[in-house]
Write a protein that binds this DNA or RNA. Structure first.
Lengths: 124, 124
DNA sequence: GCATGAACATCGTGTTCATTT
DNA sequence: AAATGAACACGATGTTCATGC
């Protein structure tokens, strides 16, 4: 009976996946990147804050940005710098959708900051 | 062979459980509360920010604060206001541990705020 | 119905394995 | 080894069920 079993979110904090997608879009807006290069960059950025994402999560984010959000397209490119002959690079396919997605995430980030700051105010 | 299979955390954002424990401790410091009453209070507080915790999560937090953190003790109390004859109320058992736990959570909340604000700065 | 608790189900994501270069 | 991807496994938490007032 088309039982659309969608599990409800209680709306706590933003998911890592969305957080990474945001960074990935911004990074790709500024140039060509491929999976592991993005991961390196992200790890370097977040390590001082105790967050170290995994490679699989970056790949999942990339795949979804391509197949579900339809924001990115991929292509293979021969890269001299990389050890591998071919590398999967992404570029923005739909700038409108990219901006729309980023806007959504921004709204949620703002909400999350409020939630955390409220906790700091209420308990300390 | 005592294979301590601890799954690594990548250190993204704070877990709902810890977030709720913090609020529960503070609420109990300020008076007597029982599970569903706490839930009501928390839901009311967070609903404007789109977060609505579930009853089971509050109970799990209470149980862990009693059995694992050993911060709370429980007792049953007959309450006139409630429909039920007896209700499970908690009070602080170890104020030292309570403060220590809150301090830990505060550190993590501060870190999380930084992570989110960094994302806002880096992507917008 | 209110209150508590546990059992069950599932999403998000960490870990491991496979494949290619 | 670097890179990509998928399979597998498990923790966190949402949902449902059981029990007693």
């Amino acid at each position: 009976m088309m039982d659309t079993n969608k599990r409800e979110s209680t709306g706590f904090l933003i998911k890592q996946r969305a957080f990474l997608k945001l960074y990935i879009i911004t990074n790709i807006e500024n140039g060509r990147w491929y999976g592991l290069k993005l991961l390196d960059e992200l790890k370097k950025e977040f390590k001082p804050l105790g967050f170290e994402p995994q490679h699989s999560e970056v790949y999942r984010a990339l795949h979804e940005l391509e197949d579900e959000e339809e924001i990115l397209t991929k292509g293979k490119v021969k890269v001299a710098g990389a050890k591998r002959k071919e590398v999967v690079v992404y570029k923005i396919k739909d700038h409108e959708k990219a901006q729309a997605y980023k806007k959504l995430v921004k709204t949620d980030l703002d909400r999350c900051v409020k939630l955390l700051q409220k906790a700091l105010k209420d308990n300390f």
